[in-house]
Simulated assay, not measured.
Amino acid sequence: MKKDLQQQLQHIIDYKTKPLGALGRLEEIALQIGLIQQTTKPVVKQPHIVVFAGDHGIAKTGLVNAYPQEVTAQMVLNFANGGAAINVFCRQNQLTLKVVDAGVNYDFSSSPINVIDAKIGYGTKNYLTESAMTIAEAGQAIEKGRSIVRQLAADGCNCIGFGEMGIGNTSSATLIMSAITGLPVVEFTGRGAGLNDDQLQQKINTLQQVYDKHALGSLDQQPIDLLARVGGFEIAMMTGAYLEAVHMNMIVLVDGFIATAAMLIANEIYRGIKPPSPAPGWSSLIAHCIFAHTSHEAGHEKILRHLGVTPLLHLSMRLGEGTGAALAMPMIHAAVNFLNEMASFESAGVSTQQAEG
């Protein structure tokens, strides 16, 4: 990490007209964003939320989900028509929303809706019996995710959050987290979109069966192989989106449980290829990310604690869609604005000693 820039940023933050550290997390965010953009005067341009949607073969069995698979397509149509929570929050905070068909089991071509067609397939296969996708499909999804973010960056976006929609995708996220951390499946298995106690136990048993079948605990999993075995097209595409966003020095907000699982895969890939980092010395993709909130989904708080990161919000939400990232976006603006616009003790003619006393 460039010590001179970090010291400059910290000096600017410390000598604003406030007691030392009085703006709390906003000061940490301002410092992080300055390091991401490698400047003492960071800016937020054309912030976006990108929601990736995909179906999961396991959802057709009904063993891990309370809602039928058809809800994925129905919710994508709801996003496109502006009726979901993420639409409300994006309008409220003046964010541009993009919805991506990564692999929904539905043909949107006949619908006059604004959805980016990046479909890899009509849902993944059932990983209870076979791999969810091929290695080639996982790679294709990652590249499409990168391409979408690359285009948004070319159009002027430098701040982005990712969301998802896919019935059954908390199960994929659970398996990914368990495989990467080595912690038991049950630690990350939650109620998803509303399972009762009996359904939750059935989900735990099913996922343990999948974990054992694919030997997720005994293999030195390559991240793309892990994606292919138990991932989803929307998770794979989001993985690529994270990688490109970090490569483009964008401010990246991580949403909830599934978005964090995709970030974990992206981090494993990032550490493997060791790309040039915007802040030299940052060996982890995690260092470039701002964690928006703690989901109420079981396991999300555990994985955030495991990663050693502190989210900005704790609202007991478990909706996905990028809603946590959208709600956290005003805090990003606030951090950048105080850094750029708040007076210093010197410029305001305020005594440092008096202000701190």
Rank of each mutant, 00 (worst) to 15 (best):
R318V: 01
T323L: 07
L35R: 11
L175Y: 05
I142S: 11
N249P: 15
I148K: 01
N205M: 03
G190A: 01
M133V: 07
I120D: 03
G322S: 07
D198C: 09
A355E: 14
D212A: 08
A153I: 02
A287P: 05
H11M: 13
R318T: 01
K119W: 03
R318H: 07
D220I: 06
Q151R: 13
I167R: 10
G156T: 06
E28I: 15
Q92L: 15
Y127V: 00
N158R: 06
D107A: 04
W282V: 00
T189R: 06
T39P: 01
S147K: 12
K119E: 02
L243E: 11
E143S: 04
E27Y: 10
K203S: 01
D212E: 14
L77G: 11
Q209C: 11
D4W: 06
G256I: 04
A355D: 14
M342V: 03
L200N: 11
K119D: 05
G21D: 12
M237V: 03
L313T: 14
A326S: 14
G83L: 15
G161L: 04
E28H: 09
L327Y: 09
S171L: 02
F233A: 08
V71N: 02
V230I: 01
T174G: 03
M342P: 02
T124M: 03
N337Q: 12
H214F: 00
G145F: 13
Q201M: 01
K2W: 09
G190W: 01
V149Y: 13
A138T: 08
